[in-house]
Design a protein around this nucleic acid. Structure first.
Ligand SMILES: [Mn+2]
Ligand SMILES: [Mn+2]
Ligand SMILES: [Mn+2]
Ligand SMILES: [Mn+2]
Lengths: 217, 217
DNA sequence: ATAATTTTTTAGATAAGACTAACTTTTTAT
DNA sequence: ATAAAAAGTTAGTCTTATCTAAAAAATTAT
């Protein structure tokens, strides 16, 4: 249906739309895709020709319904493959992303639906991100960034924003995982750093760390 | 490491080498790859530059040790994925080839080794073809084409040469599967057609069918 | 041994996707 | 309001992998 490159762009735009208020900027897409802005301009024009995005020169890009559906299809594949790699093949949660990045482009609806069934229809991927169903429906649980919590608040880790091996291994070293109960023991107003308690142990974490952990209260 | 296209060429040359006595012809590769001979000439030159094939203008192409190792790596991936699709996801043996054709290009040694382990190190794929191990070692069982057998001979079906859905479904309809005991009840000298017995039932089959079934006596 | 046929290669063109450099538009700073 | 900076686009180039048409080499037939 769509090329690997087109799919990666659609996915990038989908992710960026969640944070951008208006259209997604060309530079933002270039950053996400690790390409040059000129390459992005070429591609969004092509995607616009195919009816996948609305692109207004100098203004920005948004997904059309068709584009969003296509993006959700790729996201679904990516996350289901991540579950497979972790659950079935015993990969670590910091190893699954790069391989899923390739597997998400395999062309076969039947394959992904059977995999979904084999895994017993998982709702979330190993990083706590929700898996869209066949029709693109996605359940978005209410969650907050740990950085938004105040001293004394507590909740459960339900997701991570960053999925880089460096960050995930940082968490592994401290036995912080999806499902962990986290309590904010202290918060520094100056730099947003925190002292948190996880399973009896206390850790000092920077604001940057706290901004990449999703908590359900 | 190598591009998808390069991998497909290497695999095609590997398969053709098994039947060709000398070098593999440009036209043969074009036929296997469903491309034009001019495209093949370009590619084999590129593969020769990379030390993957020996290419002599107008004479033919053969894999180098390096090329053979690379080809065996792709074949290993293809066949392991086929086993996974059949065993784990319950696909039919005529459905697995096309999907494995894509999956064989996923770049990750770790992935294929873990999949191999998960499947408990299968020796053969669903079509009876042997799966090379990590080091490219392949156990080639002695087998004959059914077409080579004489009246009265019998043996077990251990593989199929063709893997097209049409052919595999033809076998399914007659309940002929890997492992079936087949006896040659009669053979026509004129056209090589046969009457065979499989699990009590008798079938008339053309020479073309008999030439695509591998038998172990 | 020549001629005809087939196979293979070369030359030149095209499409996708990426890049650099130059130019234009928009945004920010003064 | 104007100038400077940043963001975005255009034009032209490159690589990979294809193709068609024409030319060359090898094979087969006479
Ligand atoms: Mn990807
Ligand atoms: Mn994930
Ligand atoms: Mn392939
Ligand atoms: Mn097979």
């Amino acid at each position: 249906m769509y090329s690997k490159s087109e799919e990666n762009y659609l996915k990038a735009i989908y992710h960026l739309e969640a944070i951008a208020k208006h259209g997604v900027s060309t530079n933002a897409i270039a950053g996400e895709m690790e390409t040059k802005p000129s390459s992005v301009t070429d591609m969004v024009k092509k995607l616009a020709d195919k009816g996948l995005v609305n692109y207004v020169k100098y203004k920005g890009t948004t997904l059309t319904e068709k584009g969003k559906k296509a993006a959700l299809g790729v996201v679904r594949k990516h996350r289901i493959w991540e579950v497979f790699l972790l659950e079935t093949l015993d990969f670590q949660w910091d190893e699954v992303h790069d391989i899923a990045e390739q597997l998400e482009h395999i062309k076969s609806q039947e394959l992904i639906n059977r995999l979904d069934k084999f895994l017993d229809y998982p709702d979330y991927d190993p990083h706590g991100d929700p898996i869209p169903d066949k029709n693109g429906n996605i359940k978005s649980a209410e969650k907050k960034l740990l950085a938004e919590l105040k001293k004394g608040n507590q909740g459960q880790l339900v997701g991570v924003r960053e999925t880089s091996p460096d960050f995930l291994q940082f968490l592994d070293k401290r036995s912080i995982a999806i499902g962990s109960k986290i309590k904010v023991l202290g918060k520094e107003f100056f730099d947003g750093s925190m002292v948190i308690q996880v399973q009896g142990e206390q850790f000092f974490i920077s604001k940057k760390i706290a901004e990449n952990l999703y908590i359900h209260i």
